[in-house]
Design a protein around this nucleic acid. Structure first.
Lengths: 262, 262
DNA sequence: CAAATTCCTGCATAAAGACGCACAAACCAG
DNA sequence: CTGGTTTGTGCGTCTTTATGCAGGAATTTG
């Protein structure tokens, strides 16, 4: 019935999931998409696009608005460093993470709000070198009196506010940090650490490979959840830090898998 | 001001949320916006702006007043409010600088409050690539809807809030930007451009060498002043932008020395 | 107080969304 | 293979939303 049945068999395999992945990628890339452009790009009806946006929105991956969709970075006003929503969980996580840091260490960090909380909570007397490509995190490190900040340069990914690309990865590979703190979007037993932004995943992979010790920070909410793109197996993780007590049953499988927990 | 000739009417569509995010950003930065300015900037009717301001005001994000809106003074953004010195002049400078930029250009900028004002004033429709090592400037570029941002990585110099060092210089040398905008600390006829931070000077030298066109931005107050470290001779400068009218006698010697003035 | 903005209230219109329905393709027992 | 079920997609119709426009009211300003 539809004309595309005969035109391009390769495009025929543009399944729903595939299409949604494409849309999500576009949103993450450009921070916004218009339904109209999408439907010409993918050659489907506006209805289908709308349904896709609807679903993605229900999954919390994008924000649907009249005429298209936006990435989350739009209404998350984490730009103002004055803690709008003070999150006690993240504070707790930050405290545990800080306990791992000693004077003179060389620390590599990813982005994300948990890392940001860590950055804010660093004790003023701490002397260390922090390296990151996350602009918000760099801002925080910069305010600290005794911390040296190394910026990883490359193109900025606007939605994650972090530099991504081959230059960034190459730079990371030259380093051998004592600890790598990873803000973690999803972690589970089967798939290990997963994420939803391809560029960020590449970066995290490099960070994990380079570092002497890899520490994942995450609120318990994200434990046992999965995102589409694989970052690393559990075996690569040295420690998992959540706001939970180490004895919490939710963490037990991870301990059994050989991950330290704090 | 300059006009942006726009070929693609489809891309002109700015989603409501997007527009409001932009407005909110402007309000937070400048602490005030005028409806009239906004409606020419975003190219929508004044009515739409008013409705946006209305909604943002109802959400408590701004304070609507006759003729525009104000930011909540308690929610201060750390950088914008640390007493930007002589802002009206810098705004004027920024406007002149923006007139030089066209869609698709690759722009290199240094740091400093004048550059920051330039970054804030970039019209939302402008599509260009900006490269900088200045964290505050990067923050601004990052919030712009259509600008790609390349971060120059290296160690952060805390007092100038910019990345400095051999890595940064090496990176700059690989580039060939269309325009280089230099925030300028001191300039005079005999010594040309001078500055007071060794690392920053090294960086600026590299920027000047790499760029097709070098534009110095400075408030007139700094004209005919000298700093200890030499950056470059006047001959390297293609254009000097101040808040003054080009006919001002203060600028005459520079014009005679072959520097364009705006 | 008068002139000029700016604001508000409808209203018109075009675009986008929601909902029901049809139909093809895939899926799945038997 | 077959007949039923599920799923995905597109098409109409109707509703909602967004935006601009026109006027009269309200306000700032000199």
């Amino acid at each position: 019935m539809q004309e595309f049945v005969y035109i391009e068999p390769s495009k025929l395999t543009m399944l729903k999931k595939e299409r949604q992945a494409f849309i999500l990628h576009q949103v993450n890339l450009h921070n916004k998409v218009l339904s109209s452009t999408l439907c010409t790009e993918i050659s489907v009806s506006e209805d289908t696009i709308r349904r896709d946006l609807q679903e993605l929105s229900e999954e919390g991956k994008i924000i649907k608005v009249h005429g298209g969709a936006l990435s989350h970075s739009f209404n998350e006003v984490n730009f103002s460093t004055n803690g709008v929503y003070s999150q006690p969980e993240k504070f707790k996580i930050a405290q545990k993470a800080i306990a791992l840091i000693s004077n003179g260490m060389f620390i590599l960090t990813s982005g994300g709000t948990t890392i940001l909380e860590l950055a804010r909570s660093l004790p003023p007397q701490l002397k260390a070198t922090f390296m990151s490509g996350s602009i918000p995190a760099i801002l925080e490190y910069m305010h600290h009196p005794n911390i040296e900040v190394i910026v990883i340069g490359d193109k900025i990914s606007k939605n994650s506010k972090i530099t991504v690309g081959s230059e960034a990865i190459a730079k990371i590979k030259q380093m051998k940090p004592d600890i790598c703190f990873l803000g973690t979007n999803a972690i589970d037993i089967q798939n290990g650490v997963t994420d939803n932004d391809w560029d960020v995943v590449q970066l995290k992979k490099a960070m994990i490979e380079s570092s002497k010790m890899v520490v994942c920070l995450t609120i318990s909410e994200k434990i046992n959840s999965t995102q589409p793109i694989h970052v690393c197996d559990l075996s690569k993780i040295d420690m998992l830090i959540t706001e939970l007590d180490a004895t919490n049953s939710l963490l037990k499988p991870y301990i059994e898998a050989g991950v330290k927990v704090a």
